[in-house]
Simulated assay, not measured.
Amino acid sequence: MRLGLQVPSFTWSENQAALGDTFATIAQRAERAGLYSLWVMDHFFQIQMVGPAENEMLEGWSALAFAAGRTNHIKLGTMVTGVTYRHPGLLVKTATTLDVLSGGRAYLGIGAAWNEQEHKGLGVPFPPLAERFERLEETLQIAHQMWAGDDKAFNGTHYTLERPLNSPLSIQKPHPPILIGGTGEKKTLRMVAQYGDACNIFARIGKDELQRKLGVLQNHCQTLGRPYTDIEKTTLDVIHLTKDGRDNTLSPNAAIDMFASLAEQGIDQAIFSMPNVSDPEPFELLATRIVPEVEKIKVAGR
């Protein structure tokens, strides 16, 4: 089983001049601890579930490029890019650039977008939900075409690309893995089965609901003739690690048990954020006690 770290907040101190050094340190600690991946949200305002809109929020792809320059092998992805934020041709170029310059470490995390506040605040058009899903599907089609090196014209309902040239091509073959965020059963999970390489589900929905969502994904794979095992199953959670589990936090043993339970449910990679992410303690625990044990855990169905 694999573990990944999401960094959803950049509010660590009142000294904004130290923000870059702190983020670099977090990325380096994650890599040294043996984590498989590092993720940032692709938002422009902080989201209400994490903090006030006015809190610090870095642009996601620039932040990943910065992290790539400070690390060597950890995978890098957005959790997730809203389809409305960037024209699909430019988004594919951005993801390809990260993949090439990082030596083949990029994920493309993408979803239908939802945060109307930041759209209106920055003047980004926010179409109705149905249209956003249509745009998401066209963007996924464009990504596959461009990463296949096919530069013939793309003529969709929402996007027209006369020559979707993508040079250089990505290092990862056939392309950087596409993680599609969301668990909508009719559209999102069908798109995962048809176009994606990974899904992401909130761990907090519980074991029964998680299994039901995975069952829906499996049914879509069967309908489309896609092997279910092709899809990397990931979860997202918040965990507060301490060495002794004080104050209702997670001890290393409790964390290992939690990850083992997810592996039994067929989860390949457990991604989590940590409220104490700027402290060295959780990374020491990950490196010395948690990651070595979790790497031994076999994922059900693999």
Rank of each mutant, 00 (worst) to 15 (best):
G111S: 08
S62F: 09
D247H: 13
V50D: 07
Q117I: 15
A198M: 04
F10D: 04
R204C: 13
A260P: 03
I201D: 07
N166L: 15
T71W: 04
I290K: 04
M146K: 07
K243A: 15
H240M: 08
S273G: 12
I256R: 09
Y36Q: 13
D237T: 13
L165Y: 08
L19P: 00
K152F: 07
G60V: 01
Q46T: 15
K207H: 10
I239M: 13
V294S: 10
A203E: 14
H73M: 03
F133H: 09
Q194N: 12
G225R: 09
F154W: 04
G103I: 02
K187I: 15
A130N: 13
G123V: 04
K120N: 13
V291I: 13
R32E: 14
P128M: 02
P227Y: 02
E284L: 09
F272N: 07
G103N: 10
M258G: 03
L122C: 01
A95M: 11
G51P: 01
Q28G: 12
N72T: 15
F45E: 04
T188F: 11
A193V: 01
I110S: 04
Q6C: 10
H240I: 08
E281H: 04
G181W: 06
G266A: 06
L91G: 00
T235N: 06
C199A: 04
V7Y: 05
Q117W: 10
A106I: 00
N155M: 11
F45V: 08
A65N: 15
L122G: 00
A17L: 11
K296T: 14
R2D: 13
